[in-house]
C-alpha cells in the first residue's frame, strides 16, 4: 500500500498573534504539525503496519516546514517531500491544492490522508480540493477507518451524528479527533529520521510556477479583547437569582 500524508506546519496553539506591518508576525512563534495532521500520520502508520508499503509525507511550506516533516519521519514515516512555496508569488488553498496535486500525481499512491482543518487559517479546504484536483473521491472528518480489498469504509462525523461511507481506493481521507491517539516520536525514531530522504521540490519543477491565489487578504485585524464583565457576589442562592435576572433584563438572552 502506498500511503501519502499531507501535513501543514502551524503555529503552536498557545501562540500569541501579533501583527507587524499589517501582517501576522511569525517571529518567535514555535511551530508544530497541525494537530489534525498528527491523526492522519498515525492512521497512515497503522495502515502501513497492516498492509505494508511506504508512507510519504508531503508538505507545502517554507524552509521551516522541514522541521514538521522531520517530526513525521521520526514518528515513523519513510520519506518526506517539501514543496518550497516561497518560490510562489501568492498562495491560497487553491494554489496549494494544485501544487500538491502536481507533486503527488507523480508518485504512486493508494490512499492519501490529511487533516480535517488546519488550525491557523481554519479553511478546511486544501485536502478536499487536492482530492478534486487528483480526481479521486474523498471522505472528510473521519473518526473511524477500515480498509479491506481496496475499499475503505469510513465513519464520518456530521452535525448531530455520523455517516458510514464506502469508497474505492485511491481516495482521500481527512482526519477528525477520535480517529486514533497519535504516537510521540521516540529517541531512536528521531535518530533514524535524520537519515531518511527529504526531497525539496521547487514549484517551477512541477510546471506550476505561474499559479496565483484566487483569494486575496485585504487586511488582518485583531479582535477587541473581550472584557471580563460583572462578577456576581453574594450567597449562592442570591447570586443565582441575580444572574438569571441580569441574563433576562440586561443581556436579554433569556
Amino acid at each position: 500500500m502506498n500511503i501519502v500524508v499531507v501535513i501543514k506546519q502551524t503555529f503552536d496553539t498557545e501562540a500569541k498573534i501579533v501583527l507587524k506591518d499589517g501582517q501576522i508576525d511569525p517571529s518567535g512563534v514555535s511551530l508544530v504539525i497541525n494537530p489534525y495532521d498528527e491523526f492522519a500520520i498515525e492512521e497512515a502508520l497503522r495502515i502501513q503496519k497492516k498492509f505494508g508499503g511506504e508512507v510519504t509525507v508531503v508538505s507545502c511550506g517554507g524552509p521551516r516546514s522541514q522541521e514538521a516533516i522531520r517530526t513525521a519521519l521520526a514518528m515513523g514515516c519513510d520519506k518526506g517531500v517539501q514543496i518550497d512555496e516561497t518560490a510562489l508569488e501568492s498562495v491560497d488553498e487553491y494554489v496549494r491544492a494544485e501544487v500538491l496535486a502536481k507533486a503527488i500525481s507523480e508518485m504512486p499512491y493508494d490512499i492519501i490522508l490529511g487533516g480535517r482543518i488546519a488550525v491557523d487559517d481554519r479553511s478546511s479546504q486544501v485536502a478536499v480540493r487536492l482530492a478534486e484536483a487528483l480526481n479521486i473521491p474523498s471522505v472528510s472528518s473521519v473518526v473511524k477507518l477500515d480498509i479491506e480489498n481496496n475499499i475503505a469504509t469510513a465513519t464520518r462525523e456530521i452535525d448531530g451524528g455520523t455517516e458510514i461511507i464506502e469508497v474505492p481506493l485511491p481516495a482521500m481521507i481527512t482526519a477528525q479527533k477520535g480517529l486514533n491517539e497519535p504516537r510521540y516520536p521516540t529517541m531512536p525514531g528521531i535518530m533514524k529520521a535524520r537519515k531518511k530522504e527529504l526531497k525539496v521540490i521547487n514549484p517551477a519543477d512541477l510546471g506550476v510556477s505561474d499559479l496565483s491565489a484566487k483569494m486575496k487578504v485585504q487586511n488582518y485585524s485583531l479582535p477587541t479583547p473581550r472584557q471580563g464583565g460583572k462578577k456576581i457576589e453574594g450567597e449562592p442562592a442570591e447570586a443565582a437569582r441575580e444572574l438569571a435576572r441580569l441574563l433576562r433584563e440586561e443581556a436579554k438572552v433569556l
Binding site: 479546504q125 478536499v128 472528510s140 472528518s141 462525523e157 456530521i158
Partner: peptide
Amino acid sequence: NTAMGKDLAPRLAQRLGVGLASD
C-alpha cells in the same frame, strides 16, 4: 459552514476553479 458545507464547498470551488472564503 456545516458538516455538509465544509465538505461540499471546497470540492465545488476546486471544480469551478475559484476561490472560497471559509467559515
